[in-house]
Simulated scan of single mutants.
Amino acid sequence: MAQKYDGLSHCKLVLAFAVLMDLLGVALLLLGVFATLEVNGRDFGDLFVYTGALLVLFSLAGWVLWYSGNIEGLTSAKELGGTVGGAVDRIARSLSRRIRINRTHSSPT
């Protein structure tokens, strides 16, 4: 049976963040480049250019998070069926249990 593709259903908040940072960053960048932004003889164009560039950089992080959250078709550990993955999972679980047990017994009450 074919899988149903949900489009943009995963990570909608991160997508909105990335798009908002892109729009705001480009708007501030263009405003800083093309508008005359002087107050009391001081030019604030550079501030807008740098702030816009910084927001576009933040949006890049949002796009990476959104893209990695929407990767489809990764095989699960059960589908791989290898014993190496199962052994690593068992070791990680046992170490996690030991750490958790040691912390609960050694914590002051």
Results as ranks from 00 to 15, higher is better:
Met1Cys: 13
Lys4Ile: 13
Tyr5Asp: 09
Gly7Met: 00
Gly7Asn: 00
Gly7Trp: 00
Gly7Ser: 00
His10Trp: 04
Cys11Leu: 08
Cys11Arg: 09
Cys11Val: 10
Leu13Trp: 07
Ala16Leu: 13
Ala16Met: 12
Ala16Thr: 14
Phe17Ser: 06
Phe17Trp: 06
Val19Gly: 03
Leu20Asn: 03
Leu20Lys: 04
Leu20Tyr: 06
Leu20Pro: 00
Met21Lys: 06
Met21Leu: 09
Asp22Gly: 05
Asp22Ala: 10
Asp22His: 09
Leu23Ser: 08
Leu23Lys: 10
Leu24Thr: 11
Gly25Cys: 05
Val26Met: 13
Leu28Cys: 09
Leu28Asn: 10
Leu30Val: 13
Leu30Met: 13
Leu31Ala: 08
Leu31Asn: 05
Leu31Thr: 10
Gly32Asp: 02
Gly32Leu: 04
Gly32Ser: 07
Phe34Met: 01
Ala35Gln: 09
Ala35Leu: 07
Thr36Trp: 00
Leu37His: 03
Leu37Asn: 11
Glu38Tyr: 11
Val39Phe: 11
Asn40Ile: 01
Gly41Val: 03
Asp43Ala: 05
Phe44Trp: 14
Phe44His: 13
Asp46Lys: 05
Leu47Asn: 12
Leu47Asp: 12
Leu47Phe: 14
Phe48Val: 01
Val49Cys: 01
Tyr50Asp: 07
Tyr50Trp: 11
Tyr50Lys: 11
Tyr50Ser: 08
Gly52Phe: 00
Gly52Val: 00
Gly52Ile: 00
Ala53Thr: 05
Ala53Leu: 08
Leu57Tyr: 03
Leu57Trp: 06
Phe58Val: 03
Phe58Ser: 02
Ser59Glu: 05
Ser59Cys: 10
Ala61Ile: 07
Gly62Thr: 01
Val64Cys: 10
Val64Glu: 01
Val64Asn: 03
Leu65Ala: 09
Trp66His: 05
Trp66Ile: 00
Ser68Met: 10
Gly69Pro: 07
Asn70Val: 03
Glu72His: 10
Glu72Arg: 12
Gly73Leu: 04
Ser76Phe: 03
Lys78Phe: 05
Glu79Gln: 06
Leu80Gly: 14
Gly81Asn: 06
Gly81His: 01
Gly82Ser: 05
Thr83Asp: 12
Thr83Phe: 03
Thr83Ile: 06
Val84Gly: 01
Ala87Gln: 12
Ala87Asn: 14
Val88Met: 10
Asp89Glu: 14
Ile91Thr: 15
Ile91Ser: 15
Ala92Phe: 12
Ala92Pro: 08
Ala92Met: 14
Arg93Phe: 15
Arg93Lys: 15
Arg93Ile: 14
Ser94Trp: 14
Ser96Val: 13
Arg97Lys: 15
Arg97Val: 15
Ile99Thr: 14
Ile99Leu: 13
Arg100Pro: 09
Ile101Gln: 15
Asn102Ile: 07
Asn102Trp: 13
Arg103Leu: 14
Arg103Cys: 09
Thr104Cys: 07
Ser106Lys: 12
Ser107Met: 11
Ser107Ile: 08
Pro108Gly: 02
Pro108Arg: 04
Pro108Asn: 02
